[in-house]
Computed example of a mutant assay.
Amino acid sequence: MSKTRTVTSKPGEEHSEAVRAPSLWLTALLLIAFVVLIALGVWQIERRVWKLALIDRVEQRVHAPAQPVPSPASWPTISAANDEYRHVSVSGRFLHDRETLVQAVTEEGPGYWVLTPLKRSDDTLVLINRGFVPSERRDASTRRGGNPDGQVEITGLLRMTEPKGGFLRDNAPEHNRWYSRDVAAIAAARGLHDVAPFFVDADAGSQVAGGPIGGLTVIRFPNNHLIYALTWFALAFMLAGKLFVTFGGGLFRRKRFVHERAGGSDAAARRTGSDAGTIVEPT
């Protein structure tokens, strides 16, 4: 869409130039983009508030005194929001012949988590992540001295099951290859019944000499929401500037100077007369 503006250069003469205005569709898209950017910024601020509250809740759970692991009656209601990283304790007897190795990369290097069922007095089972072993200790025969036979008490952090597999890698139970701690799949592969729908990361205090290295749980919640919010708001601000220049910046536009052609019949008179100088028009 355009409109024509007439500019008078001197008495009796005038010329026209086209002034292009943005289309209705472009205007609508710019306004929608501005609203979306503001909404994204507000959403990131809200996410930051939620993330800070989550971090605070987890910190309180981790450092609270250990409580008994949830009873079977409460298993259907266990959730990440209410229970993950709770400091718990559980006692029973390890079923070492049913252990499962899950690939892991830790501060100790690459290797495996050792997940072993713990049979409790009521015959229910809880999978215990006893800790980390390097690849050279993958075979259970290399760490028999670290496998207690009798009653043990384990303290650690309650963790939610990790279904299906790890990043870009699916568990392959038929080949005994595990990339995530999928409780239900591990229980099915090992023929286990009455298994809790969560597992427990054993802490360093539950570590046995010669056994897996416990206490390596990493609790990390990325919190980049403020940076994201500032980015969205900055983009919205730049877009608002573009809208202002397009629709409301006429008063601040640069002035264009149109001079008489050299040698014009009345050029000298115009330079020295009452209307001397240049013709000024907005551009």
Rank of each mutant, 00 (worst) to 15 (best):
R98H: 13
D83C: 01
E46C: 10
H87C: 08
S79H: 11
T155S: 12
L115H: 01
N82H: 13
D149T: 14
V36F: 01
T116E: 04
A64G: 00
D149R: 15
R138D: 11
Y85H: 14
V42C: 12
E59R: 11
R86Y: 10
L40T: 05
A66K: 00
R61K: 03
V62M: 00
E46Y: 14
E108T: 05
S89G: 13
E46I: 10
L95K: 11
F94D: 11
P76W: 15
G146D: 07
R143C: 07
A39M: 04
R47N: 05
I128T: 09
K119A: 08
S79W: 15
L37M: 02
V105P: 07
L31M: 05
A39C: 05
A28C: 06
E84S: 13
G145A: 14
R144M: 13
T100S: 12
L26S: 07
G146M: 14
E153G: 12
T124W: 08
P76V: 01
A53S: 09
V58F: 00
V36Y: 03
R144S: 07
Y112G: 05
A140Y: 13
R130P: 12
R143N: 08
V133S: 09
V114G: 03
S74K: 15
A81V: 14
T106L: 05
S121K: 15
G92T: 04
T124R: 04
A64R: 04
T116W: 00
G145K: 15
S91I: 09
E108Y: 00
W75L: 05
S71N: 09
T77I: 13
T155H: 06
L125V: 15
E99T: 14
F94P: 06
L30G: 14
E153Y: 08
L54S: 07
V58R: 00
V114N: 03
Q60P: 02
G92D: 00
V62N: 03
D123A: 08
V49M: 13
F94V: 11
A81D: 11
D123V: 04
L54F: 06
V69N: 12
W43C: 03
G131W: 00
A104Q: 07
R98E: 12
F34S: 02
A33D: 00
Q44A: 05
R48K: 12
S79Q: 06
E99Q: 13
T124D: 06
T27G: 11
D139W: 05
G145R: 15
Y112S: 06
Q103T: 14
R159Q: 06
P70L: 01
N82W: 14
V49L: 12
I128E: 06
P76H: 14
T124N: 07
G131Q: 09
L101I: 12
A33P: 01
P68L: 07
L26C: 05
V126Y: 10
R137M: 11
V90W: 15
D139Y: 10
S135H: 15
R120V: 09
N82G: 04
S74V: 13
T77W: 14
A80S: 12
G145V: 15
A28W: 09
Q60C: 01
S135R: 15
F34A: 02
R93F: 05
D56A: 00
G92P: 02
F132I: 09
V69K: 08
D97E: 10
L54G: 10
L157S: 09
G109R: 00
T142I: 14
R48G: 10
E107Q: 12
G146Y: 08
V62G: 09
R98K: 14
P76E: 06
W43G: 01
D122A: 03
A81C: 06
A33G: 03
